[in-house]
Amino acid sequence: MTNVKVNSVAKTYGTTPVLADITTEFADGSFTSLLGPSGSGKTTLLRIIAGFIKPDQGLVMIGNNDVTDVPVWGRNIGMMFQSYALFPHMTIAQNVAFGLERRGIRGAEARRQVDRALEMVRLPGFGDRTPKQLSGGQQQRVALARAIVIKPSVLLLDEPLSALDRRLRQEMQVELLRIQRESGLTTIFVTHDQEEALTLSDKVAILDKGRIVQIGEPETVYEKPLTRFSAEFLGDSNFLTGAVEDGAVRLADGSLIKSTSILPATGSTVTLAIRPEKMAIASGSTAENSIKARITTVIYAGPVLSYHLETADGLPLKLFAQNRDGTVLKEGDEISLTWSAQHTVAVAD
C-alpha cells in the first residue's frame, strides 16, 4: 500500500501563506492532478511531498511511513521535472542507472533494469547516446524511465509536459497514462493545463490561494463545480446571481431559474453556474430555464461556434453551439437561450 497522505500541511514564506492547512489523500495507484493558476500552491505542495520543502506544520505520509522529517533522498520518490533535468555529462544509460546505483544495484542487474525501463518508454537501444543527441520528447521519456526504474513509492510530475509542443504533448500524455497504468504507481501531477488534467487523471484537485477548493473525479469536478473559482478555472462558465425563492432563483430581471442543486434558505443570494455548451438557442420547445440575450461577438471555430452575448441588464454570457447545419447567427441578433435545471449548479463565491 503506497498511498500518500498529507495532514494539515501549511507553509508560509515570510508573511505570505502559500499553503494553508491542506489535508488530503492520494489513493494507491491513482493518478491525481494538482490544477491551479500560478501562485496557487500546487508546486509547493508537490515539493513538500517530494521533501524539497519542509512544511511549517503538518504531516506527510508515504504508505505507512511518516516522512515529514525524512530528507528527499530517503523518501524513495520518482520525480520528473519541467526541464527534464537529465544529467548532460552522462549517457542515457548512466542517467537511468543513477538511482539504481544509489540503491546498490550495479552491473548486469542494473543493465537489465535500465534496458527494461528504456523499452517501457519505447527508447530501446538509446542507452549509449547523450541527452544532447535526443529530441525534447525523447529526453522526456528518458526522464520518465529514470524516475520509474527505481520503483518509487510515488511518482511526482512537475509540469513535465509544458515544454513540449502541442502534438508531442498529446503523444506523451497517452504514453504517460499507459506507463502509469502498467506500473500502477501512485502519481501526482502538477499542471496548469486544464485539458491535460481532465484527460489524464483519476482525480483532479483544484487549488486556489493555497487551498484545495475541490477534489474529485474529473466529471464530478467539471459537471458539479463547488465554487465559482473551480467553475471558472476548469472550463468556461456563465454565472447568474439571484435570490432564492420557492426552491428556485429569482434574477434581477424577474425571471425564475430552476436548479437541481441544493439551494440555501429562501431569501439568501446565490450564484448559479451554467456551462456555455449546456445552453441552447430556443426554437419552439424550451427546457426549464431560459433567458433573452443579444449577440455581441461571433467566433467561428469550425466545428464549434462560440457566441458572446449580453442580457438586457448588461450581464455577459457565452454560448458554445455545435456547427450542425452551417447557420451562423449575426452580431446584434436577439435570441432566447434555454437550458435544463440539472445543468444549473449553485456555487459558492
Binding site: 504508505g63 525524512v70 530528507p71 530517503g74 544509489r102 546498490g104 513509492s153
Partner: peptide, 15 residues
C-alpha cells in the same frame, strides 16, 4: 515494487 532492494523502509539512505 516494495520488494525492491531499497535500504531502509523508505529509501536508500536516511543520511
Amino acid at each position: 515494487l516494495t520488494l525492491a532492494p531499497a535500504r531502509g523502509p523508505s529509501g536508500p539512505r536516511n543520511g
